[in-house]
């Protein structure tokens, strides 16, 4: 009986997340405060980038969550298509605006960081461009959800859009890479975790620990928000269902 799919029951989902939510939220708050305060005040300035480097503690985690949110939506969409659990579709719907906001944060912090570093707010660099395209995908996905009245139809259509969109998002990523080799440094965070980063291109260890804490904090924040928003979506859907039920009588 104790299958993971039990949590696809809306009531069970709400009951479980109600119990988890305070813990996850507290964890998110704690980790983010710890990571950000540590990062902002207790790390040395980078010898080349000065104190501007500290925006990394917001920029990198939000960029990471922007992509992970889409990945989560993709998984949730697949679950909906295969198993048709309503909670899954609603969770995907709930995650989209969060992912979109994370994308905006990543883009905005990137611009603020880019100004002193590259001398420009915006550069048509592959990574920046990819994020902008990702943002457009989020917008389309959210707009499609809100445009369709019937819940099941909307869930089906957005799921397929999410699948097709994922393929095209990846394709765009490679297309953009081909189109312009840019200024942005490569993803150096994971290498920093694996090795002791000592060359200047890598994010070195002094910066890495608070960065990882901050990333964990953003992850927890994302989970907490998804729980909360999915609950809201479930309740909104239940409200519509009850109204429809009333019409049947």
């Amino acid at each position: 009986m104790s299958s993971i799919w039990e949590y696809a029951n809306p009531k069970k989902f709400i009951a479980t997340t109600d119990r988890l939510l305070p813990w996850v939220s507290a964890l998110a708050l704690g980790l983010m405060v710890l990571g950000l305060v540590w990062g902002f005040f207790f790390t040395p300035d980078d010898f080349r980038q000065g104190s501007t480097v500290k925006i990394i503690y917001i920029h990198v985690p939000s960029a990471m969550m922007a992509i992970n949110a889409w990945a989560m939506m993709l998984v949730a969409s697949l679950v909906w298509i295969v198993r048709r659990h309503h909670v899954s579709a609603l969770a995907a719907r709930a995650a989209a605006p969060i992912g979109a906001v994370m994308t905006v944060i990543a883009l905005a912090t990137g611009a603020i960081w880019g100004q002193p570093m590259w001398g420009t707010w915006w550069e048509w660099d592959p990574r920046l461009t990819s994020f902008l395209i990702l943002f457009l995908f989020y917008l389309g996905y959210i707009a499609l959800w809100s445009a369709i009245e019937d819940d099941d139809t909307a869930a089906d259509l957005t799921s397929i859009l999410c699948l097709v969109g994922s393929v095209f998002a990846l394709l765009s990523r490679y297309a953009v890479n081909f189109w312009n080799q840019g200024l942005h440094q490569g993803a150096s965070v994971l290498r920093a975790g694996a090795l002791a980063g000592d060359t200047e291109e890598r994010v070195s260890n002094v910066f890495a620990t608070p960065l990882f804490i901050s990333m964990a904090g953003f992850l927890m924040l994302f989970i907490a928000l998804v729980f909360l928003r999915t609950q809201t979506e479930i309740r909104a859907r239940r409200m519509r269902a009850l109204l429809a039920r009333e019409r049947m009588q």
Partner: peptide
């Protein structure tokens, strides 16, 4: 004509 579903279904919170 369909009778309103029982509220205790698996997806009872919806329908």
């Amino acid at each position: 004509k369909a009778k309103p579903p029982a509220l205790e279904d698996f997806d009872g919170a919806f329908l």
